[in-house]
């Protein structure tokens, strides 16, 4: 049954991808991409990757779609028909694909237990993580403790991307950007009453869910990455429906900037504290008298750092895009 669902979901994904190739209306393409994200999240649930599924649902169906929509509003809705040498491209793609399929014939079949990739660290993580880290969710144990250094690097990449987006698009402190959001807001107030009411009721629950995922991530699926994304989408939803000015009055962009850096510093700080206590960087065992309790404290702190940075970086990226769009529209008038 699982295999059947798996086959169906993957076929849908393929059909959507082919439709994306053919469509010229980018608005429709982005909506399809949102469905694509949701379907791949469902696929991840079917193959037991629950943590990944939550992340993909928040990213693929949420943040990605929103960002793409804002960018498309600025860059133009329709794609031109002309393509570069489609036949040559098709030939390249076909040959590469055939070679890859030929290569895949040597792979172990899907779900094959004794496959080589399950033979190395995997069994150590599954059998020992409870006694070494003491956290039921193995994914969290690996993410925050065994591979903590790697995760720190990835968090830095996200932070850097956020800074780069700000460098490219920032209008947050232009005097110009404080002007013409009025008419848009008025339009919003009149037009979207039902949606605004529903969203106003939903937002507290979305936020509650995000906090649950943040602080329950070591026992169940979830963690800082997912919580940050979901919390960010709650705020973005609010900003979209109640106007960016209102959202900025609730929490100022300066706060997000500080929070974004604070997350990284918290993560790195936990590592430095471990270092000062005579252990390796990011070895949490020394944070508390009992090594297991130390690990737990370390993981909670590190996940909090991840959550802060991901949350505020996503919001900063969105705010910068949105402000740029408003400025552009003002410039046109």
């Amino acid at each position: 049954m699982e295999l059947f669902v798996n086959v169906i979901l993957l076929s849908f994904l393929l059909a959507i991808a082919l439709a994306i190739v053919r469509m010229k209306d980018l608005f429709a393409v982005i909506m399809l991409a949102g469905i694509y994200g949701l379907l791949s999240a469902s696929f991840f649930v079917v193959v037991d990757a629950v943590d990944v599924a939550i992340t993909e649902a928040a990213v693929g169906a949420g943040v990605f779609t929103l960002l793409m929509l804002v960018a498309t509003v600025m860059a133009g809705r329709y794609e031109q028909g002309a393509r570069h040498k489609p036949l040559l491209a098709l030939a390249v793609v076909f040959i590469t694909g055939s070679l890859l399929i030929y290569g895949s014939l040597d792979m172990p079949a899907f779900g094959y237990g004794p496959a080589p990739d399950h033979q190395h660290v995997d069994s150590h993580y599954i059998n020992e993580s409870m006694s070494e880290v003491g956290v039921p969710n193995i994914v969290t144990a690996v993410l925050a403790s065994y591979r903590g250094f790697d995760t720190l690097g990835e968090l830095l990449v996200i932070f850097t991307a956020g800074v780069a987006v700000m460098a490219l698009l920032s209008t947050l402190y232009d005097s110009h950007s404080n002007l013409g959001t009025g008419p848009e807001n008025k339009w919003l107030y009149e037009q979207q009453m039902p949606i605004r009411l529903v969203v106003k009721i939903l937002i507290p629950f979305i936020m509650l869910f995000a906090f649950y995922i943040q602080f329950h991530g070591d026992y169940g699926p979830g963690g800082g990455f997912q919580a940050g994304l979901i919390l960010a989408s709650a705020i973005i939803l609010y900003a979209m429906l109640f106007g960016i000015r209102t959202a900025k009055q609730v929490i100022s962009p300066r706060f997000y900037q500080c929070l974004s850096a604070f997350g990284i510093l918290l993560y790195g700080g936990v590592g430095v504290v471990a270092l000062l206590n005579g252990e390796h960087f990011l070895d949490y065992s020394v944070l508390f008298t009992d090594p297991l309790a130390g690990q737990h404290v370390g993981i909670v702190l590190v996940e909090l750092g991840i959550g802060c940075t991901v949350f505020s970086t996503m919001i900063l990226i969105f705010l910068n895009f949105y402000e740029r769009k408003n400025n552009q529209l003002d410039g046109c008038q």
Binding site: L67, V139, I158, A164, T313, N320
Partner: peptide, 17 residues
């Protein structure tokens, strides 16, 4: 993959910018 997804959305945002 969990971390890769979040990194991917951040770099996609950079490309869009």
């Amino acid at each position: 993959i969990l971390t890769a997804i979040v990194v991917a959305i951040a770099t996609t945002a950079l490309a869009l910018a």
